[in-house]
């Protein structure tokens, strides 16, 4: 095989992969818009009345009815809806009277801050615990990790959040309570990224940073525990299949330290599979954030959606669903793209 030909073939393969990926991504996206469109239509609340109020005259009602294109056939309504979504128009939020998109962009950084911190907790503890469980298969460290992650799977996150608040905030006073920071620190730090911990560091406000951290640590750990359970379990099963391989025996026979074999060689091969797991975990963290944010009064996407739900603010709910759905799709796509980058075997296949 000559070098240029292989190179060309690789590029062609890559292009084909990307095209296939984009195809399936856009199909999933279309599905998402279909579902949100259906949700918008089956909702029992009349979208016209939500805007004009119940006391509106007949003519006002009909004018808005036409403005919302409700007189058109359903496929046409969907087409109009799709065009609007692609232009980033999610309509106006009834609750805040701002465009939904700008609302979403305002609240999303808080959710991102929370879920990224949780992911860091989950990955930093989950992977080592999974490795230790795999190397001690069947013995007590394994049992503890397995049972601990089973507990994590079984806990309602909102209950765990309340118990955490009760113990670490109310009884022990180790952390700050609900919210992102104390009210007295409001508006000190200029908004750059929207993530207060990052913004306060950029502004050099140590005090704000530590206050925000103190607010963040409990919800992030609780959300992180749930992802830890999943990451540890998957790491364990991936590691077990690696440790059975002959190269492990060969490297040990060559005199490499068991520590090196496990943590460098075997774990190095597991990383590839873990990328997918971490991407999926992040998606589920965004979901867990809805409940966690409610418990901790964390002004992120979850709380925004929850409040919109009870204000019958359909545009906002659908906008939030779309945002999380798109992040989900992008994460799935990223894990597909990253896969061949970290695994040379996936790159040269075919």
């Amino acid at each position: 095989m000559t070098a240029p030909r292989g190179w060309v073939r690789q590029i062609a393969g890559l292009i084909r992969r990307i095209a296939g990926l984009l195809g399936s991504v856009s199909l999933t996206f279309l599905g998402l818009t279909c579902v949100t469109f259906v949700i918008g239509r089956v909702i029992p609340i009349d979208p016209v009345i939500a805007i004009v109020g119940e006391k509106a005259t007949r003519s006002t009602y009909e004018r808005v009815f036409k403005e919302l294109n409700l007189d058109r056939p359903i496929p046409e309504q969907y087409w109009i809806y799709l065009k609007k979504i692609l232009h980033g128009e999610f309509g106006t939020s009834l609750m805040t009277a701002h465009p939904v998109l700008s609302d979403l962009l305002r609240v999303f950084p808080a959710t991102l801050e929370l879920s990224v911190s949780a992911l860091i907790v989950g990955v930093c503890f989950g992977i080592p615990l999974g490795v230790v469980a795999a190397t001690h298969k069947g013995r007590w460290p394994d049992q503890i990790v397995r049972f601990g992650s089973l507990l994590g799977y079984s806990m309602p996150v909102f209950w765990l959040g309340l118990v955490g608040l009760l113990i670490f905030y109310a009884k022990l006073g180790w952390v700050e309570g609900p919210g992102r920071m104390d009210v007295s620190f409001d508006d000190i730090v200029p908004t750059v990224t929207g993530m207060i911990t990052v913004d306060s560091l950029l502004a050099g406000e140590d005090e704000v940073f530590w206050n925000a951290m103190s607010h963040l640590v409990l919800p992030a750990s609780i959300l992180g525990y749930l992802s830890l359970a999943y990451v540890a379990r998957m790491t364990r099963s991936f590691m077990l299949s690696q440790l059975r391989q002959e190269y492990v025996l060969a490297t040990l026979a060559k005199g490499l330290s068991p520590f090196r074999v496990v943590w460098i060689h075997a774990l190095g091969n597991v990383w590839v599979q873990l990328v997918t797991v971490i991407a999926l975990t992040f998606g589920s963290l965004l979901e867990g954030a809805v409940l966690t944010e409610t418990v901790f009064a964390w002004p992120g996407l979850g709380l925004y959606m929850k409040n919109s739900l009870f204000a019958a603010d359909l545009n906002a709910v659908i906008g939030g669903t779309m945002l999380i759905g798109v992040v989900y799709i992008v994460l799935n796509m990223l894990s597909d793209v990253i896969y061949p980058l970290v695994d040379p075997r996936a790159r040269t296949r075919k």
């Binding site: 579902v35 909702i43 029992p44 589920s284 867990g288 809805v290 669903t321 759905g325």
Partner: peptide, 24 residues
């Protein structure tokens, strides 16, 4: 399977939330 994949790619709780909100 395409249809299944589309539903599989959705965030479960959030979608359930949106449905529950739509249906009451």
């Amino acid at each position: 399977m395409r249809i299944t994949d589309i539903f599989l790619a959705f965030p479960r709780l959030v979608l359930a939330l949106a449905f529950a909100a739509a249906l009451g």
